[in-house]
Design a protein around this nucleic acid. Structure first.
Length: 381
DNA sequence: TCTGGGGTCCTGCGGCTG
DNA sequence: TCTGCAGCCGCAGGACCC
């Protein structure tokens, strides 16, 4: 999708059409999530601090995000893709890879399939999208970026290198700010420059994996298949405080809330997790993480919470360090159906699991705040 | 100027084990 | 019994993506 969140907002409020529209968190500590092309023309970029966006572009319309709406539009767009082929690999809410090699006989050449998808989404959803057609995932992605907004670009196999080599290095998947600086230091500015550099040099400067990865991409080599169901590796939740916090009690309460959210999405995914990771960002933006692997995998809030608290205490930051963000994440996921439960002698059967699953069902019917831990009830409530 | 929240992947180090 | 080595795993941190 093109400028996805902003496009959805403009669709729902036609008076915004043609204006600079910026979707971002309403608090003072947010960043730009999405900006209309009119806003981009004025220098607004996604991930830019919202305070800066306001300074650059005070005349823009600033809109708080409505994630539920974007989620619904996303599901409907993905359904359009799946009508073309079951081989759909969502990359995010607003982007997916489709392997259409099995659909050509039924629906026509890939360019025609792309045109149909674009027309269907414009008609059904009232927003535009851009489609890249190419022999591999990463060239298709670059092609779609290249023809944005509202475009279609086909890069046939024999034109891949002509397309690729003039592009700046930053166009490659995996080249961000740091790697871009490294490459500039080596005098490499275009994808073609990377292609002409020995793999050994790239590996020495950027590391084994990144070096060979970039060398392959620069020659258009990308054998990754489209995978319809990529299993999740971790789930988590994190939150930036409106103002920095140094009270350990407030931080522990936040850890409880985040552990609850994490455990809920863990259960929703049908998995249990073995490792708990706590993320702590100090007022000066330095970030530390601490993790612990449990003897047995869990999906229970209190187990995740107690582990998170122990990690927080162990970090030494509970002695009045000023924090701006805390996060809880779990990794080492396995489907609950295949995770064996280690029975132990003399311990009561687990009961939290059933209790929390019951709470999940209540929340599904009456909303997420229908049942809460007493510790999370605010004084004014 | 002041930097979100959801993730993935890679690297380096140290400890354990065969 | 001791030592050296390789491989694996856990952990921490960093870069990157949307």
């Amino acid at each position: 999708m093109d400028a996805f969140y902003a496009s959805v907002e403009i669709r729902d409020r036609p008076a915004l059409a043609g204006r600079p529209v910026i979707v971002g968190a309403s608090g003072s500590r947010g960043v730009v999530l999405s900006a209309s092309y009119e806003a981009r023309a004025l220098g607004i970029r996604s991930a830019m601090p919202i305070t800066r966006a306001r300074r650059i572009c005070p005349q823009a319309d600033f809109i708080a995000p409505r994630h539920e709406v974007y989620g619904r539009v996303s599901a409907e767009v993905m359904a359009v893709f799946r009508a073309v082929t079951p081989q759909v690999e969502p990359l995010s809410l607003d982007e997916a890879f489709l392997d259409v090699s099995g659909s050509v006989r039924r629906l026509g050449r890939p360019a025609r399939i792309a045109a149909v998808i674009r027309a269907t989404i414009a008609e059904q959803q009232g927003i535009t999208c851009s489609v890249g057609v190419a022999p591999s995932k990463f060239v298709a992605k670059l092609a779609s970026a290249h023809c944005k907004p509202d475009g279609l670009l086909v890069v046939p196999a024999d034109r891949v290198l002509d397309f690729l080599h003039p592009l700046p290095v930053g166009a490659l998947w995996g080249v961000g700010e740091r790697t871009g600086e490294e490459l500039a230091r080596l005098g490499l500015r275009t994808v073609g420059d990377i292609a002409q550099t020995p793999v050994a040099t790239l590996q020495r400067e950027l590391g084994q994996a990144a070096g060979s990865h970039l060398a392959a991409l620069a020659w258009g080599r990308d054998e990754r298949p489209v995978v319809a169901a990529v299993p999740e590796k971790s789930v988590g939740a994190e939150e930036t405080f409106a103002a920095d916090v140094d009270d350990p009690e407030v931080i522990r309460r936040e850890l409880l809330r985040l552990a609850g959210r994490t455990a809920r999405s863990l259960r929703a995914s049908g998995c249990v997790a073995r490792t708990v990771v706590v993320k702590l960002r100090l007022a000066n933006f330095r970030t530390i993480t601490r993790s612990r692997t449990l003897r047995e995998p869990t999906e229970v809030t209190s187990v995740i919470y107690e582990t998170a608290c122990a990690l927080y205490t162990g970090s030494g930051l509970d002695r009045r360090a000023r924090l701006r963000l805390v996060g809880v994440r779990v990794t080492g996921l396995t489907p609950v159906a295949t995770a064996g439960v280690q029975l132990s002698l003399g311990e009561p059967a687990p009961s939290w699991q059933q209790a929390e699953r019951a709470v999940d069902r209540i929340a599904g019917r009456f909303g997420p705040d229908a049942v809460r831990r007493a510790a999370l009830v605010e004084p004014h409530e």
